[in-house]
Design a binder for these strands. Structure first.
Length: 106
DNA sequence: ATCATGATTGTTTCG
DNA sequence: CGAAACAATCATGAT
């Protein structure tokens, strides 16, 4: 078994949906945004890999309570993503119900 | 309904 | 400008 090829990247949005309803950010994303400054502040002179590791290590070191604020944001973002999806699938439905409307098209 | 996978998200530094 | 480690998430598809 072959090891599944390791996707260097995320694959260029290889999806079958027309408007991928991207989802919400991960708490880690919010966590990094706040910590990235601190990491560099406590680890001045380190490179990319180091900072990433410190963040990950710290993140795991935190408990849900610490992540709480970050998770909260994630939930907020989730709502945002929810809207995307709503528009994404909802739009298709609307188009069908609208019977004859054109949205736009390129 | 539940499992599994895929797709997505943001950060860092450096040439 | 993009690349990879770092972690999470969660929505959809498949069964």
């Amino acid at each position: 078994m072959p090891k599944e090829a390791k996707p260097k990247k995320e694959k260029v949005t290889k999806k079958k949906d027309p408007h991928a309803p991207k989802k919400a950010l991960s708490p880690y994303m919010f966590f990094t945004q706040e910590w990235r400054e601190k990491i560099k502040d406590e680890n001045p002179g380190i490179g990319f890999g180091e900072v990433a590791k410190r963040l990950g290590a710290k993140w795991k070191s935190m408990t849900d309570e610490e992540k709480e604020p970050y998770v909260q944001k994630h939930q907020a973002d989730k709502k945002r993503a929810d809207d995307e999806k709503e528009a994404y699938e909802g739009k298709s439905k609307a188009a069908a119900a609208a019977s004859g409307d054109d949205e736009d098209d390129d």
